[in-house]
Amino acid sequence: HNLTITQGKLFFHYNPKLCLSEIHKMEEVSGTKGRQERNDIALKTNGDQASCENELLKFSYIRTSFDKILLRWEPYWPPDFRDLLGFMLFYKEAPYQNVTEFDGQDACGSNSWTVVDIDPPLRSNDPKSQNHPGWLMRGLKPWTQYAIFVKTLVTFSDERRTYGAKSDIIYVQTDATNPSVPLDPISVSNSSSQIILKWKPPSDPNGNITHYLVFWERQAEDSELFELDYCLKGLKLPSRTWSPPFESEDSQKHNQSEYEDSAGECCSCPKTDSQILKELEESSFRKTFEDYLHNVVFVPRKTSSGTGAEDPRPSRKRRSLGDVGNVTVAVPTVAAFPNTSSTSVPTSPEEHRPFEKVVNKESLVISGLRHFTGYRIELQACNQDTPEERCSVAAYVSARTMPEAKADDIVGPVTHEIFENNVVHLMWQEPKEPNGLIVLYEVSYRRYGDEELHLCVSRKHFALERGCRLRGLSPGNYSVRIRATSLAGNGSWTEPTYFYVTDYLDVPSNIA
Score class of each variant (00 low, 15 high):
residue 203 S to F: 12
residue 204 D to V: 14
residue 206 N to S: 05
residue 208 N to V: 06
residue 210 T to Y: 13
residue 214 V to T: 06
residue 215 F to N: 15
residue 216 W to Q: 07
residue 220 A to M: 10
residue 223 S to C: 12
residue 225 L to D: 09
residue 226 F to A: 05
residue 228 L to G: 12
residue 229 D to C: 07
residue 229 D to A: 15
residue 230 Y to M: 04
residue 232 L to E: 12
residue 233 K to V: 13
residue 233 K to N: 09
residue 233 K to M: 15
residue 234 G to Y: 06
residue 235 L to R: 08
residue 236 K to I: 04
residue 237 L to W: 13
residue 239 S to I: 08
residue 241 T to A: 11
residue 241 T to V: 11
residue 241 T to W: 04
residue 244 P to H: 12
residue 245 P to E: 10
residue 245 P to Y: 08
residue 248 S to F: 14
residue 249 E to T: 05
residue 249 E to C: 06
residue 251 S to Q: 11
residue 252 Q to N: 02
residue 254 H to T: 12
residue 257 S to A: 13
residue 259 Y to A: 09
residue 259 Y to V: 13
residue 261 D to V: 14
residue 261 D to M: 04
residue 261 D to N: 10
residue 261 D to H: 14
residue 262 S to R: 09
residue 262 S to M: 13
residue 262 S to F: 14
residue 262 S to T: 11
residue 263 A to C: 06
residue 263 A to M: 11
residue 263 A to D: 12
residue 264 G to W: 13
residue 265 E to L: 09
residue 266 C to P: 04
residue 266 C to K: 09
residue 267 C to E: 05
residue 268 S to A: 05
residue 271 K to R: 12
residue 272 T to H: 13
residue 278 K to V: 12
residue 278 K to S: 13
residue 279 E to Q: 06
residue 281 E to I: 14
residue 282 E to R: 11
residue 283 S to E: 12
residue 283 S to P: 06
residue 284 S to H: 12
residue 285 F to A: 12
residue 285 F to E: 05
residue 285 F to M: 14
residue 285 F to L: 07
residue 286 R to M: 10
residue 287 K to N: 14
residue 290 E to P: 03
residue 295 N to V: 06
residue 297 V to H: 13
residue 299 V to S: 11
residue 300 P to L: 06
residue 300 P to E: 14
residue 302 K to D: 14
residue 303 T to E: 14
residue 304 S to T: 04
residue 307 T to K: 10
residue 307 T to V: 05
residue 307 T to Q: 05
residue 309 A to G: 13
residue 311 D to S: 14
residue 312 P to L: 14
residue 317 K to W: 03
residue 318 R to P: 12
residue 318 R to H: 08
residue 319 R to E: 05
residue 319 R to G: 14
residue 320 S to Q: 13
residue 321 L to F: 11
residue 322 G to N: 07
residue 322 G to T: 09
residue 323 D to L: 04
residue 329 V to Q: 03
residue 331 V to Q: 14
residue 332 P to A: 06
residue 334 V to Q: 06
residue 336 A to C: 14
residue 336 A to G: 06
residue 339 N to F: 02
residue 339 N to D: 15
residue 340 T to L: 08
residue 340 T to A: 08
residue 341 S to L: 12
residue 342 S to K: 03
residue 343 T to Y: 07
residue 344 S to W: 11
residue 344 S to G: 04
residue 347 T to V: 12
residue 350 E to L: 12
residue 352 H to S: 03
residue 354 P to I: 12
residue 355 F to A: 11
residue 357 K to S: 14
residue 358 V to F: 15
residue 358 V to K: 09
residue 359 V to C: 08
residue 359 V to M: 10
residue 360 N to A: 13
residue 360 N to L: 07
residue 360 N to H: 06
residue 361 K to I: 14
residue 363 S to L: 09
residue 366 I to V: 09
residue 368 G to K: 02
residue 371 H to M: 02
residue 372 F to E: 06
residue 373 T to P: 00
residue 375 Y to D: 00
residue 379 L to M: 09
residue 380 Q to K: 03
residue 383 N to R: 07
residue 383 N to P: 02
residue 385 D to F: 08
residue 385 D to R: 08
residue 385 D to A: 15
residue 385 D to E: 08
residue 389 E to Q: 13
residue 389 E to K: 13
residue 394 A to L: 06
residue 397 V to Q: 03
residue 397 V to A: 15
residue 400 R to M: 02
residue 404 E to G: 11
residue 406 K to Y: 06
residue 407 A to Y: 08
residue 411 V to R: 07
residue 412 G to F: 11
residue 414 V to G: 01
residue 416 H to Y: 14
residue 417 E to R: 10
residue 423 V to D: 08
residue 423 V to M: 05
residue 427 M to L: 09
residue 431 P to N: 02
residue 433 E to M: 05
residue 436 G to Y: 02
residue 436 G to F: 14
residue 441 Y to T: 02
residue 442 E to L: 10
residue 443 V to E: 00
residue 443 V to P: 01
residue 443 V to F: 01
residue 443 V to Y: 01
residue 445 Y to C: 08
residue 446 R to P: 00
residue 448 Y to A: 05
residue 450 D to N: 08
residue 455 L to Q: 07
residue 455 L to P: 01
residue 458 S to E: 07
residue 460 K to L: 03
residue 461 H to D: 15
residue 462 F to Y: 05
residue 462 F to R: 13
residue 463 A to Q: 09
residue 463 A to W: 11
residue 463 A to T: 12
residue 463 A to F: 11
residue 467 G to R: 07
residue 468 C to E: 01
residue 469 R to Y: 09
residue 469 R to W: 09
residue 471 R to H: 06
residue 472 G to N: 10
residue 473 L to P: 02
residue 474 S to P: 07
residue 475 P to C: 07
residue 477 N to L: 12
residue 478 Y to T: 01
residue 485 T to F: 08
residue 486 S to Q: 00
residue 486 S to G: 05
residue 487 L to W: 05
residue 488 A to L: 03
residue 491 G to S: 09
residue 491 G to A: 10
residue 493 W to Y: 13
residue 496 P to L: 13
residue 498 Y to I: 14
residue 500 Y to S: 09
residue 504 Y to W: 12
residue 506 D to K: 09
residue 506 D to T: 13
residue 509 S to L: 11
residue 510 N to Q: 05
